[in-house]
Write a protein that binds this DNA or RNA. Structure first.
Lengths: 257, 257
DNA sequence: AGGTATAGTGTACTACGTACGGTGAAGTGG
DNA sequence: CCACTTCACCGTACGTAGTACACTATACCT
């Protein structure tokens, strides 16, 4: 997986970049910068949106900006930090509609849909590892906004965080599946159906209803229901409803264990 | 992300490798092979277990086996297919205890725990993209075994597949978080606590209770409850209980939408 | 006008997967 | 017993990454 890691550089520098401080446009010595961090990040996002995160190489991005690859390092400490900046930027751009009088279930479903919309516009965002999230204004605004949907419904603070994490984690994992499916398509040049049609007859020689009775029965039923082996869209609707149903008892105060 | 993709080579060859056909030990021309696929795959798994999937490079694996890098291509068409073989192999090794008279909830929880145990032993397995899963004996046996826990409790076939997918998908996503956290630790040489201690004071300058009231309140509560910003262990227990609670209405036949 | 901080860049290093073509050993047919 | 065939093995090399380092050129300050 070329899962891209989170930054390892100087925290102070990274946070300054994220919060756009030190960006005081005082008349400084030396030549005028030809680019801005904003433009670098924006262009990187455009490339990632169109061609995936792997396409955002320093050389490719530099070419898109009309500069030499090494020039980017004047604006960004490393590719890893660039990705953090990209992620916080798309978080920041998310529309945050506040709805008064919304019940918790609608609110949480809306949060899930908002995240889903994010990953539809920016599939690469689902690929980024977030065990150490970008501590920028986008991340913070997103967290604050999402917690609002869970505030005041009787959950304690830790449970609020857990419930939100479960929901957004699910949406992200679901989006990752979709990205991986798309990557497989792109890398191999073979569509899901072609892949399955090539494998199915060969697989049928080894996997028979007598040796795998339930798997063959359920697998073929599921394969017919969706078009391919796995369908992120169907999995999303199913999963989010189950998760909301699972949070219900917490709100009602009659959850298990 | 170095999310590793699924194979793109010849399906017939890949399936033969997975099911270990064409392995007829007829006395063939030419020098005796010094290795076996089994040994290659086993060694690769050992490296991945100890040092992560990224450490499984063709050169590293070849060195561990005492051969030249290119020699591996006599046994495996590409690194991608090797990873498929590794994955199917660890699937195949999973213990499959069948318990009679188990209620569905215990059964599904057991399935989740079995998957969790897999990812504890082989964290790298969570990293592998499975939108086109390895169609080998391990994958099939695992699927068959897991479906058994959901069979005969009144769910239709498609719903059985969806419910199972939700559970194992959750466990895998949770394991991925853990892998990513570990990678971040390893790559940066900075522990979670050190990372947080370095960032917290700088973040506090930008994130105040007045600007982000709920986020600061809930974030600090959650941060105190677990040790770090994110705790996969706590998230697992919380998440799996919510998901089981969410499947309950399906079994009872009173689910939403 | 001269000094200096800084934007921009060319070159090069490491590490990766793997294509290609050569080499030598094991078995077969005469 | 010998030549021929087949195949395991591998040395070299290519293309693609990120980025360290040293150098050049520019624009401001004194």
């Amino acid at each position: 997986m070329n899962a891209d890691r989170t930054s390892a550089g100087d925290p102070a520098r990274t946070l300054e970049l994220l919060w756009r401080r030190g960006m005081d446009e005082s008349p400084r010595r030396g030549p005028r910068p030809r680019l801005t961090i904003e433009r670098v990040v924006r262009t990187a996002i455009e490339i990632a949106d169109g061609e995936g995160l792997d396409a955002v190489t320093m050389r490719r991005l530099a070419a898109a900006l009309g500069v030499a690859p090494m020039t980017l390092y004047c604006y960004v400490p490393s590719r890893t930090e660039l990705i953090d900046l990209m992620l916080d930027e798309v978080y920041l751009r998310m529309p945050r509609t506040e709805i008064r009088g919304e019940d918790w279930r609608s609110g949480l479903k809306r949060i899930a849909d908002e995240n889903r919309a994010l990953y539809r516009s920016h599939p690469w965002a689902a690929e980024v590892a977030t065990s150490r999230p970008p501590l920028g204004p986008g991340q913070m605004a997103k967290y604050e906004h999402e917690l609002l949907a869970l505030d005041g419904i009787g959950l304690d603070d830790v449970t609020m965080d857990s419930a939100l994490g479960l929901v957004v984690g699910f949406v992200r994992a679901n989006a990752r599946e979709a990205v991986e499916a798309e990557s497989a398509r792109r890398d191999s040049g073979v569509s899901d159906r072609e892949w399955w049609d090539a494998n199915a007859p060969l697989l049928a020689e080894r996997v028979t209803p007598s040796s795998y009775p339930i798997a063959t029965r359920v697998g073929s039923a599921a394969g017919e229901a969706y078009d391919a082996a796995v369908s992120p869209d169907a999995a999303y609707e199913f999963g989010i409803q189950r998760i909301l149903d699972g949070i219900q008892p917490l709100v009602d105060g009659r959850a298990r264990s």
